[in-house]
Design a binder for these strands. Sequence first.
DNA 1: ACTCCAATGTAGCACAAGCTACCTTCCAGT
DNA 2: ACTGGAAGGTAGCTTGTGCTACATTGGAGT
Lengths: 150, 150
Amino acid sequence: MARTWTQTRPNRPGRAFRKVRTDHAAETAQDYVEAVSDIVHRNGVCRVKDLSEHMGVSHVTVSRIVARLLDEQLVETEPYRPIRLTARGEQLAAASRRRHDIVFRFLLSLGVPGHEAGPDAEGIEHHVGDATLHRMAEHVAGCEETGAAR
Amino acid sequence: MARTWTQTRPNRPGRAFRKVRTDHAAETAQDYVEAVSDIVHRNGVCRVKDLSEHMGVSHVTVSRIVARLLDEQLVETEPYRPIRLTARGEQLAAASRRRHDIVFRFLLSLGVPGHEAGPDAEGIEHHVGDATLHRMAEHVAGCEETGAAR
DNA sequence: ACTCCAATGTAGCACAAGCTACCTTCCAGT
DNA sequence: ACTGGAAGGTAGCTTGTGCTACATTGGAGT
Ligand SMILES: [Mn+2]
Ligand SMILES: [Mn+2]
Ligand SMILES: [Mn+2]
Ligand SMILES: [Mn+2]
């Protein structure tokens, strides 16, 4: 019965890379619902144009992605109308913003200058597991009770 | 002269998201050259199969990506032959590994358990700017001179 | 020397996300 | 009420990365 079983259970590095890929797949939805939430709070409504400027992409890219979010019931809208978040969308936005803020404030508390912490946080946030997020939050809290960054 | 100038210079969030997108574009090359380097050190040679197992993807995906790395002069190989790194590939691999190690050890020094630090580092590494990397390295050094993680 | 099979290559598909070019809609200001 | 132009939709292309199915190759073992 030998069983060569070349690769029955996934190996360690393979698992890690798979996780990164699923994180990437979730990334767009998180950033967009967060953006919709921000823009609605700032402007009252969120239009395709607003998202296009916010994300730095063309309006075409935005409207295809909005169609996907509609599919996933994260937003609702009709043609030529503003975009609102569904309840699910609000939840995801809240969770994403919380994560984003923790990562951003953590980088600041590490001593990273704001102009670099912003862009770095935008990417890092999607790859931070629960344990890592907890540790970051604790670090931020620790630094704030002592005294500011550094 | 009014100048509506809807969007002449990119806005802040737009710049951040653009950076994330360029980071993602560089990600595959970095992970693959790092993998080739690791596998060569471990096995003597690196084959498509090794990469396929390491990355957790099919051999088809690997061989198309290897073709791209060949184009970018990061690796050299011929059909049905092992894959070696070029000088440029070695350089990129060394830089990537250094970055990867710093991020990983940083997470450990934060108190993140290894089984989560590994996968998280695999994603985070590509979004860490120079200032952030420096801060992480300093944090690791500080923790090591004191006493281990925590 | 042959043969078999694991490894590799190729064809062709899917899907996400980027773009330009072009068409349609709607509303603000006359 | 009209209408010009900004906003948004649509068509169709590109690139990157994933896949299955099938063809090819080369070397290990007889
Ligand atoms: Mn975010
Ligand atoms: Mn983000
Ligand atoms: Mn890596
Ligand atoms: Mn990686």
